[in-house]
């Protein structure tokens, strides 16, 4: 095998390169979400080279590490919109709580209705929150953390890609409702998409993402005893 492929720079170059190309494509083809095109480019290249995905993930560890400070950075849009947030604080808390309860109950009910396995049920419950929170909850419930990560990523991609059109059709166009819905349903992916919409939408999305992580973690405490 060629040596340079095993240098972390290969994975980083491939990822950042695919991301840059995907943004370029997005400026021409608006409906093609960059997360889909960039992932497709990477998966095709990895498949052509017969490159193991586990090794690729090891090489791009720097990017997953930087997700930490990138999440911290969401404090800036939240802080800048503090006045509007303060005016809407009750509405924010009620809607995020309603969203968290809906996320847990609807995912659980749908899996039970379609006769999914117990393992899937326990792993899908925390899917609306970002994967680090989902992993913790899933582990405490007895689910499979790897499955939970996948559910939360698929949820994020789905919400980030199709969420805006759905919200527009449902008449939820104002930046506050839009951002809160995207952040509650699709965590970081929804927030990234909301920031493209407007800074107001992005700040409410970041707020909803953090709050739904907190409310969902709290809502699961009684579930541990009930399901445990």
């Amino acid at each position: 095998m060629i040596v340079f492929l095993h240098d972390p720079l290969f994975g980083l170059t491939l990822t950042v390169g695919a991301y840059a190309i995907a943004r370029g494509i997005h400026s021409r083809i608006r409906w093609l979400h960059p997360i889909l095109s960039s992932s497709a480019i990477i998966l095709i290249v990895l498949a052509l080279l017969r490159f193991p995905i586990a090794e690729f993930q090891g090489e791009v560890g720097l990017l997953t590490t930087l997700l930490g400070p990138a999440t911290v950075a969401l404090g800036v849009p939240i802080y800048k919109h503090r006045r509007l947030i303060r005016e809407r604080v009750a509405s924010v808390l009620i809607s995020v709580l309603a969203g968290s309860v809906t996320g847990i109950c609807s995912a659980g009910a749908l899996v039970l209705l379609t006769r999914g396995s117990h393992e899937v049920l326990l792993s899908i419950l925390p899917k609306s929150v970002s994967s680090p929170i989902g992993i913790e909850i899933s582990r405490s419930l007895g689910g499979t953390p790897e499955l939970s990560v996948m559910f939360s990523v698929v949820t994020g991609v789905l919400g980030g890609v199709l969420g805006p059109a759905f919200l527009y059709r449902s008449g939820l166009r104002d930046p506050v409702s839009f951002g809160l819905a995207m952040g509650s349903a699709a965590h970081g992916f929804g927030t990234a998409r909301s920031l493209q919409e407007s800074e107001t939408a992005g700040s409410f999305s970041a707020l909803a993402m953090g709050l739904s992580g907190i409310t969902t973690s709290l809502l699961f405490i009684p579930l541990y005893f009930w399901l445990g």
Binding site: T15, V16, A18, Y19, P34, I35, S38, S39, I42, F56, Q57, V60, G61, L63, T64, L66, L67, A70, S131, V149, V153, G156, G188, F189, T191, A192, L195
Partner: peptide, 8 residues
């Protein structure tokens, strides 16, 4: 922000 989600 999206760039950091690609590995996931």
């Amino acid at each position: 922000l999206l760039l950091f989600f690609i590995p996931y």
